[in-house]
Design a binder for these strands. Sequence first.
DNA 1: AATTCGATCAACCGCTTAACT
DNA 2: AAGTTAAGCGGTTGATCGAAT
Length: 313
Amino acid sequence: MGRAPCCDKATVKKGPWSPEEDVMLKNYIEEHGTGGNWIALPHKIGLKRCGKSCRLRWLNYLRPNIKHGDFTPEEDSIICSLYISIGSRWSIIAAQLPGRTDNDVKNYWNTKLKKRLLGRRKDRDAHHRQSAAATTSETSTENMNDAGERALSASAMERIQLCMQLQELQNPLGAAHHNPLVWPGCSRAATLSNNSFNSNRSTVTLAEQGQSISMNEHLMSTQLEGGAAMDGGLGSPSSAENSNVISMEAELEELLYGEGNRSGKAGAVDGGVQQGDVDWWSYDQGKSPVGCWDFAPEATNAVFQDYTSVYDI
DNA sequence: AATTCGATCAACCGCTTAACT
DNA sequence: AAGTTAAGCGGTTGATCGAAT
């Protein structure tokens, strides 16, 4: 037995909103507010719409100061960085972008940014394949991608792909997990020997390359950064780590806009947190606008479990 | 000019969470 | 403490439009 419907689907109107409906909803909310009850709202106005539909229409379209389209390079960078860090938590990501809605950010990511990033990756992989055709071993990335296609959830796979993409940029030899330039938290995470994640620590062995990557460490460190920021236990990073984050953002920009375009980008990262950039380390308890670094361990564990199930860790 | 295809985005669906009784 | 209800959220769908053939 399913959940009871929130409204009478037989009498409720569905589909695109007419300008008249928009005006009715907008006028009413501007005059009376929502009244804290979206379900009752359409009845008060005389709209044959579901309360959830009204709420969505208001939040995503009618609300004042909504911006549509024309995402700036700064916004691109923020979206990508946050997506890699926290995944598809669109409401949190959108909260960092004034005037943007979660739906907008989600659509923008799915239709443009993701393709831009992963597309570039594909191009480069193809290029790598060509240049490495003479060698018998494939790159670790390709192995992982092939395996990932088997079972890894799309979201987790995307995140791992993007993480690895950045790693490759920083360290083409593949030892990125030890390179704090990519993930400032990695080295720190490794020192937190008594944190709960260590009980699950595993290693992905890339035998052909004689290298190993601890994806657990990698993924967990990402959220350890957040957890540390939230509980104040580790405080702010060193200036060196701050510059590492900036370095990561710079790599994102390169992926998004390509070489040669970075200098022309307004507010380009060139050595400091500038206006329009995310002040990554300001999300402490008091200032965090939406608790954006409150990683749920189960969420990231799920990603990790996805990963371990694929690679038989 | 007609058709096909892919991209975009508004809107819906259903699950989770939080507030309330 | 348990049950109920609505809000919030992310995934998905489907209509629309423009480009390509």
